[in-house]
């Protein structure tokens, strides 16, 4: 098996606002020396409490941010630090689902136009009818109908919006999907539906998945491999079952002990 995603010694920090123009800049270290790989077709779970650098990592993986040091490679090619124009061919292959389905869809844009946006960039040659066919098929695949196209995000529930976000992310048939807490903003009753939809689509589209969550139960249920993060560093990494049944690091043990038992 070859790796679809390689992360090598990734560092990222955010500048804090300066006290004055002559004051020294202060930084927050968000990601510090991360290295890992994701095999083609697998699911990598990343767990850690809030503030552990998970969301920063997600943005680095999809090249929304440029790391201070280190590299992100997609199928062996470096994508970190590329200019937007050179990044474009990779954009359609690497997509992301955001935590907040209320924020990830433009409130002023109809659903049809929202889903058409990545398609228009990836396949500019597609005619209007062809584009419409693809969008309708994708909407139906995520459990929504053609009627959704002309409506606005605020007319949908959180779960439905996340379905729309998934449709938008998958419309260009990406190979790698980074899901940043995709269900934590949703009702528990809806979470399972969205997770199962993601699993189905993963098989159907041949996706590799990075699944970021603070919910250990979900990560254990989904993932092949798991990385435990704390303060921007990897605390522990291993096969999902082994890691959850025989955690080695003290932090992992604490996290597991804090899991609610059902």
């Amino acid at each position: 098996m070859s790796a679809i995603l390689d992360v090598v010694d990734l560092h990222h920090r955010y500048p804090l606002p300066r006290d004055g123009i002559f004051a020294q800049r202060q930084y927050v270290q968000a990601v510090e020396g991360l290295s890992f790989a994701l095999e083609e077709g697998k699911i990598l779970g990343i767990v850690g409490e809030s503030g552990s650098g998970k969301s920063t990592l997600a943005r680095l993986l999809v090249a929304l941010e440029t790391p201070q040091r280190g590299e992100v490679r997609f199928r062996g090619e470096r994508i970190s630090g590329l200019r937007e124009a050179r990044l474009r061919p990779f954009r359609r292959q690497i997509q992301m689902i955001f935590q907040d389905p209320f924020g990830s869809l433009d409130p002023r844009m109809r659903i049809g136009a929202s889903i058409a946006e990545p398609l228009g960039v990836a396949e500019p040659g597609l005619d209007v009818a062809g584009r419409r066919r693809r969008i309708v098929a994708m909407l139906e695949r995520v459990g929504l109908g053609e009627g959704a196209m002309m409506r606005y995000p605020h007319q949908f529930s959180g779960g439905q919006r996340q379905r729309i976000a998934i449709a938008r992310a998958l419309i260009t048939h990406p190979k790698l999907l980074v899901a940043d807490e995709p269900v934590s903003a949703l009702d528990v009753s809806v979470q399972a539906q969205i997770l199962n939809l993601l699993l189905d689509l993963k098989l159907e589209f041949g996706l590799s998945l990075v699944f970021i969550s603070h919910d250990l139960g979900i990560v254990r249920y989904l993932s092949d491999r798991v990385i435990v993060m704390q303060h921007g560093k990897v605390v522990e990494e291993g096969e999902s079952e082994a890691l959850f049944s025989r955690p080695a690091a003290a932090y992992t043990k604490t996290l597991i002990a804090a899991m609610p038992r059902l």
Binding site: R59, V62, L64, E84, R88, R91, R92, I94, Q95, M96, F98, Q99, D100, G103, S104, L105, D106, P107, E117, P118, V121, A122, A165, R168, A169
Partner: peptide
């Protein structure tokens, strides 16, 4: 996030 999503779409 929808601005990030637009960047991911390649805009």
């Amino acid at each position: 996030d929808f601005i990030r999503a637009a960047r991911l779409a390649g805009c």
